[in-house]
Design a binder for these strands. Structure first.
Lengths: 209, 209
DNA sequence: TAGATTGTTAATCGATTAACAATC
DNA sequence: TAGATTGTTAATCGATTAACAATC
């Protein structure tokens, strides 16, 4: 497992996980690299290369066991190690994520939300308490959450990311339209940029004409 | 402009747009490929290669004019051509997107929302009327929206995508955790997969340890 | 055993980086 | 003019695909 795994492979891992889950739900117990590749739009060769970055999960002449492979990928993605998260920004987007997103299924427990709005502070959203954002630093110092979810207005994003990093956050899940990519090299950042995604769609539509 | 532009370049275009906007807001009028690359975490060479897929926007010995380049990239992304969109699913996530996301800024007008909940049907969310999802097909046939935004429960995603394609939709912006990539080759799909993003973050955190 | 399909090495393809002449 | 920086070609690097021996 000592070869360096490329970014491209890492980004495909969650897709393997999703598709294998689907197969499991359908009661399928084994799958060949050919069939899995067809389902995902990859070549059989690529599927085998990808999986072999992490180990030999298959069996010659047979294929891959769905259950076993799903478990293994879950472990590679560390979905089995429970982590804690806080969310900063409990407005529309923040509360939508709190209410809708299944943190637990992805190995996370959402322990607290933070906001500046006095009408929200002190309430609960789907069982998650909303605290005053001014208490963020103290809370993190005491409770060292693993991940910070950024759903506040983007002008506060850098400042908030700074506080989280000060307190030893291990990762940032960024929903603001700001490029946090490079600023904080030490802490991994994953961006969910709605606008970028829609712009790409706009471009693709233009190409079709 | 006849060279085929790679997927990798296309995905960087929105980032150029975002960063150039930022520069413009700061009152900066020109930028070199070196400085823009530093800001974005790319090499100067890559910046020049990327931009030259679409034309020579710079000037030797000077650099790139921020305003002009921003405009040009906006045109490449077709942000200047107004398109219409409908959103299917006006629950938590759907309403969060309706309320928060600036469609107009990205060249879109959100003309209608659809839902199955009788409590929502007939209401308005941020000025967008919510219709019965059973009227989706008729509405699209009559109004031919350009893009469909999928924010309904994932079990209805494929069926809904089918209806939209029947009615000649030009693009799909998919927020459900389903891989619509390949099903409908003719219609471009852009996925916003929260879960995949968080799984990648989980993996990266695991790597750091 | 024969057929199927993996794991893995080699070949190809494409994307990034480096280099440099052109030119503002 | 001299300095800076582009546009573009060539070199390098990495990722995908093809091929095939190993083996279930």
């Amino acid at each position: 497992m000592e070869k360096k795994v490329s970014q491209a492979v890492i980004r495909r891992l969650p897709r393997y996980h999703t598709h294998l889950s689907e197969l499991q739900d359908m009661g399928i117990t084994k799958i060949s690299s050919k069939d899995l590749g067809d389902k995902m739009g990859l070549t059989a060769s690529q599927v085998r290369q990808d999986l072999n970055c992490f180990g030999g999960f298959g069996q010659q002449g047979y294929g891959y066991p769905v259950d076993g492979l799903l478990d293994s990928i879950g472990q590679i993605l560390k979905l089995d190690e429970m982590k804690s998260a806080v969310i900063i920004g409990a407005g529309n987007l923040g509360s939508a994520i709190i209410n809708n997103f299944n943190f637990f299924k992805n190995g996370f427990r959402l322990v607290a939300a933070f906001d500046a709005d006095p009408n929200l502070i002190g309430t609960e959203i789907s069982g998650v308490p909303v605290y005053d954002v001014r208490e963020l630093r103290e809370f993190c110092t005491n409770n060292h959450p693993d991940v910070g979810v950024l759903t506040m207005p983007k002008k506060f994003a850098r400042e908030t990311a700074g506080i989280l990093c000060d307190c030893g956050i291990r990762g940032i899940w960024n929903f603001t339209n700001i490029d946090l990519h490079l600023d904080i090299d030490a802490v991994p950042v994953e961006n969910v940029h709605f606008a970028e995604s829609l712009m790409v769609l706009s471009y693709k539509i233009g190409e079709k004409k």
